[in-house]
Design a protein around this nucleic acid. Structure first.
Lengths: 99, 99
DNA sequence: ATTATAATTGAACAACTGTTCAATTGTCAA
DNA sequence: TTGACAATTGAACAGTTGTTCAATTATAAT
């Protein structure tokens, strides 16, 4: 057991930060919804039955994590997935759950 | 956007619970270390430079989540990975980080 | 029996997280 | 410019989380 070498602590932090972000039902729902295409904040709020404020706060978290990007169009702001890996990870995790 | 159907909320909870567990540096290190084979609590504590108590608490979380199993042998308790999917998910997540 | 080592437990504490609320910014239409 | 709508922001709050500490259980050796 002496010679086990841990990965770079920076890598490890990035990994756990990533999982931390995925570890929230609201954010998972947002990502799931955006899988189908871009949606504006109001639509997402209606879909999840939450306030626009709460949704906006979480979208900000997802954006900082570079999991989504946004585009302004008139009064609306449209959000879309920004990473093709997320779908793969969700699928792997689902496999894990469903056994 | 009207007809987006969310996954079963139970499935979603299981998913976010799983990610929540992965979203902690200590637990990630424990899983990483156990990738190489089974280790007892004291070894893990020394490896991560933490108290046995803290490690034991986190191992309990991992055990309840069925990510590890344990086996008693004399005064020691040996822990081992209990799920072959975890490694795959870690790899996918690493791919995501490293780009 | 006694002592020493390994591990677990539960309470307590500080740190962090997600939602709410009220206020604010930005954009369009009248 | 005024009013209405979309979205963002920051402070505040309750709820959750991870580690520490002290006490306890369990096993092995003397």
């Amino acid at each position: 057991m002496e010679n086990i070498k841990m990965p770079e602590s920076e890598t490890l932090n990035e990994l756990s930060d990533f999982f931390k972000i995925m570890g929230d039902g609201t954010r998972l729902k947002l990502l799931w919804a955006l899988e189908t295409g871009e949606l504006c904040v109001g639509d997402l709020a209606a879909l999840l039955n939450m306030t626009k404020s709460a949704v906006s706060h979480q979208l900000k978290v997802l954006k900082i994590a570079k999991l989504v990007r946004n585009r302004k169009c008139g009064k609306n702001v449209y959000y879309a997935l920004n990473d093709h890996h997320v779908k793969l990870i969700l699928e792997k995790a689902l496999e894990h759950i469903c056994e």
